[in-house]
């Protein structure tokens, strides 16, 4: 039995909780909302944050490998904060193969920053009886902060590794490969329980099969409100946030760019002429 499981008296070999964030489809056209605090997102379609699909795949592979080598079952649990959109990404996670889902939904959760979400994630993990590993994406495609997982690790009192491009279970816990700048990779050994933030490209996320989608409908999805998490109204949403959004806006276009128009052939001819005679680079 893994140390995390032993500590919490759980009987599964390895329990992995994966955070899935719903984000607007990256191909969406974006417009700032009326009060300039976010985008108009009511009409947009939402998908699972790209890095989180890699995290979900990493969780499934980790449990599969451990089950194969030690013939005991692992469990993958998916977790998401948000309204219906969050329920939708959770169903995708279940269809990929997660065993059950936890949906944190409450009107009080609107707004909020990375710190608030990290607190909610940590609370939910504790309420669910802990885990051996908590996985998040390296960063969200919309906010791009890349800090929620590390904050959750701190609030849980667990070790962590960020920007992980490889992970394996070993005797002492986990062995993780972490990406640094300039193509450097470091290998770490981490004690469990721990948090990993999963980098793009670590794996090829599996597609949900029709069978997986059917099976997902029968799987358990718990919905927890603010009260269930034991948090005060002032701890969540925009009230609990430590940073207040002052304004969201479209950045000014830098005037130095010359846009070359016309048919593809005309634009190409203009470009080549500019590169030769104006920029003098070819």
């Amino acid at each position: 039995m893994s140390p995390g499981a032993a500590a919490s008296g759980r009987d599964t070999l390895m329990k992995v909780i994966v955070c899935l964030r719903p984000v607007p489809d990256p191909a969406s056209r974006l417009f700032v909302n009326e009060d300039r605090t976010w985008i108009k997102d009511a009409e947009l379609s939402f998908v699972t944050n790209e890095a989180d699909t890699h995290a979900c795949e990493a969780a499934l592979e980790l449990c599969e490998r451990v089950s194969a080598s030690r013939s005991e079952a692992g469990e993958v649990v998916v977790l998401s904060i948000g309204r219906d959109r969050a329920a939708r990404v959770l169903r995708e996670g279940l269809a990929m193969g997660a065993a059950r889902a936890i949906h944190l939904a409450d009107d009080d959760f609107e707004g909020g920053d990375e710190y608030v979400r990290a607190r909610m994630i940590a609370r939910a993990v504790e309420k669910d009886g802990g885990a051996d590993v908590l996985l998040t994406g390296v960063q969200s495609d919309d906010l791009g902060g890349g800090v929620t997982g590390v904050m959750a690790a701190e609030l849980l009192g667990w070790a962590h590794a960020s920007v992980v491009v490889g992970v394996n279970a070993v005797e002492a816990g986990l062995r993780a490969r972490r990406e640094l700048e300039g193509g450097l990779i470091e290998t770490l050994e981490l004690a469990t329980p721990c948090v990993l933030t999963i980098q793009l490209g670590i794996n090829q996320p599996r597609y949900a099969t029709l069978r997986g989608i059917m099976a997902a409908k029968k799987k358990e999805m718990k919905t927890w409100s603010r009260g269930d998490l034991g948090m005060a109204a002032g701890d969540v949403g925009s009230e609990g946030a430590l940073c207040q959004v002052t304004e969201v806006r479209v950045p000014e276009r830098d005037h130095r760019v010359q846009m070359l128009s016309g048919s593809p052939a005309e634009a190409a001819a203009r470009l080549v002429e500019k590169l030769r005679l104006e920029a003098k680079v070819i």
Binding site: D141, D142, L143, G144, G145, V248, V250, P251
Partner: peptide
């Protein structure tokens, strides 16, 4: 002090004010 951070892959800028 108000800080600017890029969001939506730098298609938008978000200005935030730390509280307290």
């Amino acid at each position: 002090v108000v800080f600017t951070r890029p969001v939506f892959n730098a298609k938008m800028h978000m200005r935030v004010t730390p509280k307290g």
